[in-house]
Design a protein around this nucleic acid. Sequence first.
DNA 1: CTTGGCACTCAGAACGGGAGAGTGCCAGGG
DNA 2: CCCTGGCACTCTCCCGTTCTGAGTGCCAAG
Lengths: 337, 337
Amino acid sequence: MLDDRKLAVLRAIVEDFVSTNEPVGSKSLVDRHNLDVSPATIRNDMAVLEEQGYIVQPHTSAGRVPTEQGYRLFVDRLSGIKPLSAAERRAIETFLAGAYDLDDVVMRTVRLLAQLTRQVAVVQYPSLTRSAVRHVELVQLADRRLLLVLITDTGRVEQRAVETPGRLAEESIGRLRSVLNAHLSGRKLAEVAEVMAELPDRVEPGERPNAAAVFSVIAETLVERHDERVLVGGASNLTQGDFSRGLREVLEALEEQVVLMRLLGESGDLSAVTVRIGSENEVLGLRSASLVTTGYGAGDHVLARLGVLGPTRMDYPTAMGAVRAVARYVGQILAES
Amino acid sequence: MLDDRKLAVLRAIVEDFVSTNEPVGSKSLVDRHNLDVSPATIRNDMAVLEEQGYIVQPHTSAGRVPTEQGYRLFVDRLSGIKPLSAAERRAIETFLAGAYDLDDVVMRTVRLLAQLTRQVAVVQYPSLTRSAVRHVELVQLADRRLLLVLITDTGRVEQRAVETPGRLAEESIGRLRSVLNAHLSGRKLAEVAEVMAELPDRVEPGERPNAAAVFSVIAETLVERHDERVLVGGASNLTQGDFSRGLREVLEALEEQVVLMRLLGESGDLSAVTVRIGSENEVLGLRSASLVTTGYGAGDHVLARLGVLGPTRMDYPTAMGAVRAVARYVGQILAES
DNA sequence: CTTGGCACTCAGAACGGGAGAGTGCCAGGG
DNA sequence: CCCTGGCACTCTCCCGTTCTGAGTGCCAAG
C-alpha cells in the first residue's frame, strides 16, 4: 500500500512540520531532504498519503500537514526514541542527586522534564498502595482530636486529623500506637485492610470506640482514597505553540487533579513509553494535545507515571527520550533512598 | 487641586474601564453615571486629570484610560472594600469547613479565592517560625538513615531525611526521641535554636555524633530555611484579560517559589488589605499585574499571606472584599483546629 | 513510473477610502 | 468664573480591492 518512499515522505513531512510549524510543500521537501526524485513525484506520493488520511492541506494550494493518524504512524513505525546527549544525562543525574526528600525528588523531576522538553511536565506521586507501612504515629492535638501520621517505606508521609468520640488519656494513646505499629509495620498498604479487621480484638474493650475512629480514618486514607497527587510544571511553555486558542481549556484541565489522574491512568503499558495523540485522549479540552508517558519506580515495581504534555505537533522522538531517561534516573534515586 | 467632581470623574473612568476594557469617552461617561453636567465640562476635567497624570489616552481621539497613578488614587481614596454577599459568605464558610487537614485548607483556600475573584490566587503556607513544636518523631529508614518528622501546633508536618555518621541502635533512637520531645515540645520554633544549643549535654557522650547530625538538620529545616511554600491557583483566569502578550512571563513568575515569596514579602502591613499596582511590584515580569493581599492567621497572630493577582485593570473593591473575607474565615478555621 | 511544463487556486499582505468616536478650542450665557 | 453647545480636526478601525507567491493537479513526453 505505502512503499518505502511514501513512508519516507511522511516522515519528512512530520519532521519538517514539527520544526517549522508551517505546511510543507513538495519543493521544500526535496530541497531539505535528499530524496532523489523531483517535486512532481513527491506530489503524486502526497496525493496518495492524503487519500489515505495521513496528511491534509489546510486549504487548497497550501502545503501538507500531518493528521493525527499521520503522527500515529510516525510514532509507531517511522521514528525511534532519540537518546539524550551525554551532557543531558549528566545534568539529569546531578540535578536529581541533590534532592533530599520525596517531595523534593518529585519537584525536581517536574522541573527537569519541563526544561528538557520545553513542554508541560506531569509527575504522579509514587503510589501509596504498592508501598509498605514503616511507622504509625499518633499525636494529641486537643482533648478529642488526634493527628495520625503514617510513614511509608518510600519515605512518604501521610497525615490526617482524627476526631474521637471520647477523651483520650496519654497512656491509651501510647497503647494504641503500640498496637498499630506492632500489626501494621512492614505490611503492604494493600494488605492493611485485612489486618485491620482483626485489630479491634487487640484493644481493651473500654478503648474500642476511640480506637475505631482511628481505624476507620486509616482505612479511609489508605484504601479508599487513592488520591495520589500529580504535580504539574512548565505551564509557561504552553504559550509557545499551537495552544493559543484552546489555552484556557488546557490550563483548566491541568489544574484539576481528577482530570490529570484520569489522563495518566489511560496509558496502558507501564514499562514502555506510550504516546497518546490528540483525540486519543478522552479528556475534554486536551483533544489537541499529545501526551508522552511512562511508568517509573524504585527497582522493578512501578510506582507511578510521569510524562510530558504538548501540542500534537511535538518532537516525539526527543520527548520520548527525555521521558524514558528521566524515569530511569528517578527510579535509581528512589531505589537508593 | 482636584475638586469633588474631578474625583468623581476619575472614579467613573476607572469603574467603566474596568468593566468594559475600552477607553472611556466624555459622552458615555455622562450617560452611564448621573453627573449633572455636559460632556464638554467633563472634557475639561479630563484634560486636568490627564495633566496630573491620572489618566492617558492611548492615541489622540480615543477615550481615556487610567494610569497606575490613577488606580492608586482610586484604591486609596475613591473606593472602599466591597463586602461580599450573604450567599458568598455562606459558600466560603461551608467550603472551608469541609477541609480535613492543613494541606486541604490551603488547597481549598486557593480554589475559593480564584473562583470568587476570577483571578489568580496565591496562598502562602502558614509560617513555621511563629508556631510551636507539638511533637518530634524519629523513624529508622536504614542503618544510617533516619526520617525526622516534626509536627507543629498548626497541624503542619515537616519531614526530612537525616544521614547519621554511625549506625543507630533502636534504643538510642528512643532516647534521642525522648530528649527531643522533652525539650522541644511546646517551644515556639523561633526559640528552638537557643534550646538546641544546650541539647548535646543531655545526650550520652557516645551518641553525640549521631545526635549532632539530627540536631543540625532540625536547625536547618526550621531556622535557616524559611521556605514557606506558596500555592497558586486559577492560572486559567489569565487567558481572559490583558495579559495576552506578557502571558509567558507571568506564568514563569508564578512557577518560581522564590519570586512568589518575594512578591508576597513586599507588602508591608499584615493586618490590612494592601494593594500593589503594576510597577510597584519589584518583580520583573509582573510589572503589568496588580496584587491584592492580606495577612491571615489563627486568632491574633498573623501566620502568612494570601491574595489575588490580576491585571492592573482589575475590580479592586470586589477583590479586596473577597481577600479580606477569605482571610477571616481561614483564620477561624485555623483557630478551631 | 518519473519528469518538466503549465494553468489554476487561494491565503495573506498592501492599499485606500469612508465612517465613527472622541477630542480641543472657542464664543456665548448664567 | 464656570458651564455649555457648536465645530473643525484627528485618529483608529473596518471593509473592499488588488496583487503576489507558494503550492497544487494534470498532462504529455521520456
